[in-house]
Write a protein that binds this DNA or RNA. Structure first.
Length: 187
DNA sequence: GTACAGATTGAG
DNA sequence: TCAATCTGTACT
């Protein structure tokens, strides 16, 4: 492997820090690679927008409770998968939603195949079989640091998307993306 | 067991 | 603006 994989120590830090520093990192799915350009932080159990709000633990979200560096993936609206990466320590049920990737090859770029959480998973062929996958050990998928230098001035914070039901939590600026990047999701 | 809403998307 | 389509939650 040419580039260093992100280690456990990267993921077990504060969720907002991880959400920001994931920007510019590369998600590698065997031959497919994309640079992360948009993320959102979900911080249970206080966060009403989180599936772990109030300490809820269901068959669907149990992987969200794993130690940082694991995949929590779930089906939304019955058709679209949402890729999350757990953070912090086991039992902390906090995670980062990966919302958009910038593909490496020009053909995929022109189609914006990963500009949205549902599209991203469809492109990378991610589904339930990846639930609970360990990104620090898996041979199918992992995260790499390819030397992209992230400057704080490039990080744009904004309200999270699609969670208006969460009241004041919906206003938290916990969505982060690379300023001016054309591959962030619409809206 | 039934009803309903959701961390979305692409077509109209 | 709307429907597609499945899982968890709150009812009966």
């Amino acid at each position: 492997m040419k580039f260093p994989r992100l280690k456990r120590s990267f993921f077990i830090r504060d969720t907002l820090t991880v959400a920001k520093e994931l920007l510019g990192k590369y998600l590698v799915r065997r031959i497919k690679v994309g640079k992360i350009v948009e993320t959102e932080a979900y911080i249970g159990p206080g966060d009403r927008a989180s599936h772990a709000y109030g300490g809820r633990l269901t068959k669907r979200n149990k992987t969200e409770y794993l130690i940082g560096g694991h995949i929590y993936i779930y089906l939304c609206y019955g058709m679209y998968w949402q890729l999350n990466i757990t953070t912090e320590r086991a039992g902390k049920h906090e995670c980062v939603l990966i919302r958009a990737l910038e593909p490496l090859d020009e053909k995929s770029k022109s189609k914006k195949v990963a500009s949205g959480p549902g599209k991203l998973c469809k492109w990378m062929k991610l589904d339930k079989s990846f639930d609970g996958e360990d990104l620090t050990k898996s041979k199918r998928i992992w995260l790499e640091d390819r030397g992209f230098k992230l400057k704080s001035s490039q990080i744009q914070a904004a309200k999270r998307i699609g969670i208006d039901y969460a009241g004041s939590w919906a206003k938290k600026p916990w969505r982060f993306y690379l300023k001016g990047n054309p591959f962030v999701s619409r809206k």
